[in-house]
Design a protein around this nucleic acid. Structure first.
Lengths: 118, 118
DNA sequence: AGGCGGTTTCGATGGCGGTCGTACTATGAC
DNA sequence: GTCATAGTACGACCGCCATCGAAACCGCCT
């Protein structure tokens, strides 16, 4: 009956202009976090925390989401009990042009050893 | 006299196609190493190890040079007692397009808060 | 030859970050 | 209400890496 209205829980996000390069790089240097970011980039729509596949425990995954959010890489919001995630692609592009896209491209290229395109 | 021991000491460099993204990111995530890379990018010609300014000891600096070289970011060669350094810019561009340049641009932009030129 | 300046190696140290399990909270379904 | 589901907070552990000083090294110059 009652719809999953936008919930009360809110999440703090940094202003991207406040985030130093160091923090972004530290966020992207961890393989698990890069895995998360790649999955987000490849997804059609936002993903909830639970839908990610990573070789770590749930609590560790939560930690990684926090790091990514505090670095301004992702944006999070609650929908019911689910916490959704989305990349802050455009904002990052303004802050550090080409950085996130280059990392994503490199990660994608490495993931596919020898598959041209389709 | 003796043979072409022009520069007897040689240095091992990885093939860039062999270097994983992880290693490059790990190399670039350290602030001191990014400082080194920035100075190298801003220099007209190759620099010897001793000409770099960094808030660390010489032995630590040597360590950073090793990390950068093993990650394929820089190329090193001896000239007399001096060890020269140069960025492997083009090769890196082929391996991970846009990555190194984006990091360099971001670092440069952050270094100059709001100074067009002077 | 002998010294020197530049660079490296070695071993030790300290701190930080990724990892986990468990206990906990919050929301929605029944 | 109770239960189930989704995610979080906390504390502990552990390994790795940046750092250092001191000593060795290697060419070059006088």
């Amino acid at each position: 009956m009652a719809r999953p209205r936008t919930t009360a829980r809110t999440v703090e996000h940094p202003e991207l202009s406040e985030v130093p390069l160091q923090q972004v790089l530290e966020a992207l240097v961890d393989p698990v976090r890069r895995l998360v970011v790649s999955q987000l980039a490849g997804a059609a729509e936002d993903l909830s925390c639970g839908t990610f596949v990573a070789p770590v425990s749930l609590s560790t995954l939560t930690h990684h989401f926090n790091v990514l959010r505090e670095a301004g890489v992702i944006r999070q919001y609650y929908v019911g009990t689910a916490k959704m995630n989305t990349l802050r692609t455009e904002e990052m592009e303004l802050r550090f042009p080409g950085l996130l896209s280059a990392v994503l491209a490199a990660a994608a290229a490495e993931a596919e050893p020898s598959r041209p395109a389709r």
